[in-house]
Amino acid sequence: MNNAYLLKSGRIIFAIGMMGLGIYCLVFQNFIVARPPGWKVPVSMLVAYTSGSLLVIASVLILFNKKAGIAALVMGAVILIFSVFKNFPNFGPDAVGAYKALAYFGAALIVFAASLPDDAGFKNRLLSDRNFSRWIFISGCVLLAAFFIIGGRAHFKWADGVQYLIPEYIPWRLFWTYFAGVCLFAGGIGLLLPPTRKLAAILSGVMIMGWVLLLHLPRLIYNPTDPDIRLEIFEATAFSGIFFFVAGMVTKRGALNT
């Protein structure tokens, strides 16, 4: 698959998902990216309007590829301050939300890395060094992989509950729960290995977009007033997009392509 197409489509899909999350911050008057512990009123309103507005603006800039590097840097800072730090006391092998916060931060790092060294806003010698952009990119992939591996573990540990997220019309729900867990493990490990990074990213992006179409949208049709389901759709859309974007950033042999 053409790298330029993967980069463009991944960037657009990621930006749409993140824009939806930013709008949700405004709607719910709290910061909801990776669902950190809530802030108390009226602090929650200030946090929501500030962070949500910044996320929406950054997402629009990324969507149209205008100062995307600076926009990704702002997005990453917002997620780091309002989600990663807020989730920090909860880090542990069962803290899926905390790892999700790190994954969103990693996604912002990846978009930032893609803008280097060519973005006119980054003329500093360090920022223009391809090794620097490569390590930023790898750091983002590691954070995404960690979330996938933890998520795969959760599919096994809480399989009895996770299976009911699958619509009833799909048979063998427990089997598909375990199968999804294996796929998450494989996707996470594949992202860590340069020779398999591109394939793992493409397959992970397809898998998550498939979940949107087969799981989240049917659940939304069945229960259209549930805000959590709409939130899940935006979350999955953003992750699907960043995986396609990652695939566009590497060659078939795993070398950084930007």
Rank of each mutant, 00 (worst) to 15 (best):
G92I: 04
G92Q: 06
P93W: 06
P93G: 12
P93T: 05
D94L: 15
D94S: 14
D94G: 07
D94P: 07
A95Y: 05
A95N: 12
A95V: 06
V96C: 11
G97M: 15
A98H: 12
A98K: 12
A98V: 12
Y99C: 03
K100N: 13
K100L: 15
A101W: 06
A101H: 09
L102V: 01
Y104V: 06
Y104F: 10
A107Y: 00
L109H: 04
I110A: 02
A113L: 02
A114P: 04
S115G: 01
S115F: 04
L116I: 01
D118V: 14
D119V: 13
A120C: 12
G121M: 09
F122D: 05
F122I: 08
N124D: 15
N124V: 09
R125Q: 14
L127C: 15
S128Y: 10
D129H: 14
N131W: 10
S133Y: 09
W135H: 12
W135R: 11
I136H: 05
I136L: 15
I138W: 08
S139T: 08
S139V: 03
C141W: 05
V142D: 01
V142S: 03
L143S: 05
L144K: 02
L144V: 00
A145Y: 04
A146G: 07
A146V: 13
A146S: 13
A146T: 09
F147N: 14
F148R: 10
F148N: 11
I150G: 08
G151Q: 10
G152S: 07
G152L: 09
R153H: 11
A154K: 14
H155A: 01
H155Y: 04
K157L: 14
W158K: 11
W158R: 09
A159H: 10
D160T: 11
G161K: 04
G161A: 05
V162A: 10
V162S: 06
Q163A: 08
Q163S: 06
Q163E: 07
Y164W: 08
L165F: 13
L165Q: 09
I166T: 00
P167M: 00
I170R: 01
I170N: 03
P171I: 04
W172Y: 12
W172H: 13
L174Y: 06
L174E: 08
F175R: 02
F175S: 02
T177S: 12
T177Q: 07
Y178D: 00
